[in-house]
């Protein structure tokens, strides 16, 4: 195979995997805390929007990212209050929030920029890349020159593995999802742990949204997250919330995304290419369930 082709495919995979990775790492936190987070889609979208807005207004991608993260955290806080303290159904609230944000971003875009379904401008500052030219083809293309958020996300994966499995907070987080009564019995409030998990999840989904709108495409368009919040959810369900497995599965889903991009330029109908990531997430989930069912059967 053509080396250029492999390189492009690899770089696109990494680029596409980054937001899925960040979101699923965030969702893994709430997953461990006992909440299947279906609001990640909305969290990414609100961040994608505010990242673009603030990047455009300030000319700085950094402020853009900060704005996106803050917006996403606020919404996540709202979600957590509903789910952990008002005991509302997490699916119902999650979808209400997703739909709210889908229309809210559209509404704000119209009010603020009179755009139709998308907003782009050369003034939107893009997220920096780790720009180093060593002259070595492999280093330059396979290790360097990715978005800084890509490096950050991989670091976060390892950091979360540390937090979840090595620290006191991580222990409580895992107990929170597995047996909240044990936590209550030890005098720790379940709701508070869930709240922290949700806020952190908001932050990570915020980064994911920023990567989408300030690096992957550098614009905001209607519902631009395109179900990635749920691809991330599938990744969490498959990985059992283990950060290193999340990393691997996100890369896999990133690869499907990259193949989708690549295939759009090929002879087959682009719709099938666009369909690919969604079909593959169902297929991977299906394979996972077939495998676990076999294990149950043996036990």
């Amino acid at each position: 195979m053509d080396i250029e082709l492999i390189t492009t495919l690899f770089r696109t995979s990494i680029r596409m995997a980054t937001p899925i990775l960040l979101a699923s790492l965030g969702g893994a936190l709430t997953y461990h805390a006992g909440i299947i987070n279906v609001a990640m889609e909305g969290l990414m979208l609100i961040s994608a929007f505010f990242s673009v807005v603030f990047s455009y207004l300030t000319g700085s991608a950094f402020y853009g990212i900060i704005a996106g993260v803050v917006a996403s955290m606020l919404i996540s806080l709202l979600y957590s209050v509903f789910v952990s303290f008002l005991k509302a159904n997490n699916f119902a609230i999650g979808f209400a929030i997703n739909i709210l944000i889908s229309s809210l971003t559209l509404f704000l875009m119209r009010v603020m920029f009179q755009g139709k379904n998308a907003f782009n401008s050369p003034d939107i500052a893009s997220i920096m890349e780790l720009k180093v030219k060593t002259g070595n083809y492999f280093l330059d293309n396979y290790l360097l020159n990715f978005s800084i958020l890509t490096y950050l996300s991989i670091a976060i994966a390892f950091l979360l593995a540390y937090i979840i499995y090595k620290t006191s907070f991580g222990l409580r987080l895992r107990v929170c999802g597995e047996m909240p009564q044990a936590l209550t019995a030890a005098g720790i409030k379940v709701g508070v742990i869930q709240l922290w998990a949700s806020i952190l999840c908001g932050g990570l989904c915020g980064l994911a949204g920023a990567q989408l709108s300030l690096y992957n495409v550098r614009m905001f368009s209607r519902d631009m997250t395109g179900g990635r919040g749920f691809v991330a959810l599938a990744a969490i369900l498959i990985s059992g919330g283990k950060p290193k497995r999340v990393l691997f599965i996100s890369l896999l889903f990133g690869l499907f995304d990259a193949l989708s991009v690549k295939l759009q330029n090929e002879k087959i109908a682009p719709q099938f290419a666009l369909m690919l990531p969604y079909i593959m997430s169902v297929v991977v989930l299906l394979l996972f369930h077939l495998k676990t069912r076999k294990q149950y059967g043996k036990a």
């Binding site: 540390y162 620290t167 006191s168 222990l171 597995e178 047996m179 936590l183 030890a186 720790i188």
Partner: peptide, 25 residues
């Protein structure tokens, strides 16, 4: 809690006594 160790179950709620640097238990 099934997936954690004996010691972790016993100490749960008081485990921050054993926190060393970097908040590691």
């Amino acid at each position: 809690v099934q997936s954690i160790t004996v010691a972790e179950n016993i100490v749960l709620g008081m485990e921050n006594r054993f926190q060393s640097k970097l908040r590691r238990v």
